[in-house]
């Protein structure tokens, strides 16, 4: 049975009751602390102010815009414009300057390298490594060996249009043919030429390939791109085989696999993603890592 009775003061706790009683058990009246209650009321009042100042209520075809017409998309446009202004003068100067001019101007160089380092960390480091040290399949950018060229123009071209990036028609194209898969070379021929590549590359020749035969096969199939001396050709993106830098590895299995399946690494084109000043800064940064030509 429950019933309401007149509120009274509970004898044990000294707290008043609400007057609700169930089977002789009375409910104590312990209201919310005043400070809490008034804070709650204040937030309600605050929300009314918020409705007035910021976009809030849906209407028939639009919504209330708020006193100042603030909107997140307009705000980001303003913020980006502000950023453009801050970088504007230095950026415009950088875009036009040659590498020699940039190197001669301490302020311009530090701007380019700071921006380049930041852009590199965000966009390039996942493949080339945080220190541009590279990884298997992703070239080291600190050394002075370049697959597609280490001049500022070549670096800029590579960043802007990528390598073997189909979506960009100006991308650096041309890949090593799949000599084995396409049936140009037989398995024993591939083994011989792989041995020859190891021999000119200065690593221990695995197994017992016929190096004389390998040399002939090399001259007929490989020299057109990698050169008679194995020094490669940056025009074609064919790496040097004699610089002791092995992008995929110098063991026989890896070399055989490359000859069998051909192909080459892929780098996205960044022209659509990064603005020209950022690409210039990246070029300066990469060029300055140690191996720039």
């Amino acid at each position: 049975m429950s019933h309401a009775s007149e509120p009274r003061v509970d004898a044990h706790t000294g707290t008043p009751t609400t007057g609700h009683e169930w089977d002789g058990i009375a409910e104590l009246n312990t209201p919310l602390p005043r400070w809490w209650l008034w804070t709650f009321y204040a937030t309600i009042v605050w929300s009314i102010g918020y409705w007035v100042v910021y976009p809030a209520w849906p209407l028939a075809t639009t919504h209330t815009n708020g006193l100042f017409g603030w909107n997140s998309r307009a705000a980001i446009v303003d913020e980006l414009n502000e950023l453009k202004t801050i970088r504007g003068a230095a950026g415009a100067k950088l875009e036009k300057a040659s590498l020699a001019e940039i190197k001669g101007d301490a302020q311009m160089l530090s701007f380019a390298r700071a921006q380049g380092a930041a852009a590199f960390a965000t966009n390039c480091a996942p493949c080339h490594g945080a220190g541009a040290q590279g990884a298997k399949g992703y070239p080291n950018l600190n050394d002075d060996e370049w697959i597609w060229g280490g001049t500022p123009e070549a670096i800029s071209q590579t960043i802007t249009h990528g390598i073997r990036w189909d979506a960009d028609k100006d991308s650096r194209a041309g890949a090593m043919p799949a000599f084995g898969k396409d049936g140009t070379l037989k398995a024993d021929e591939i083994a011989n030429v792989a041995g020859y590549v190891q021999s000119i590359g200065g690593v221990k020749v695995e197994g017992s390939p016929d190096l004389a035969k390998g040399k002939t096969i090399y001259a007929e199939n490989c020299a057109a791109c990698h050169g008679d001396d194995g020094k490669g050709n940056m025009e074609l993106g064919s790496p040097s085989l004699v610089d002791k830098i092995w992008l995929y590895g110098s063991d026989k299995a890896t070399i055989v696999n490359r000859i069998q399946n051909g192909g080459g690494g892929v780098m996205p084109s960044w022209g659509g993603r990064l603005d020209p000043v950022t690409i210039k800064s990246l070029t300066v940064y990469v060029h300055s890592l140690g191996g720039g030509k």
Binding site: N123, A125, P126, C127, A135, K136, G137, Y138, W165, A167, G265, V266, M267, P268, G272, R273
Partner: peptide, 19 residues
């Protein structure tokens, strides 16, 4: 378009291999 297909392959197989 930010990374190559090969990068995604390496990365899914073992993210630490590339990052």
């Amino acid at each position: 378009g930010k990374y190559s297909d090969d990068w995604h392959r390496d990365h899914m197989n073992n993210p630490r291999a590339v990052v």
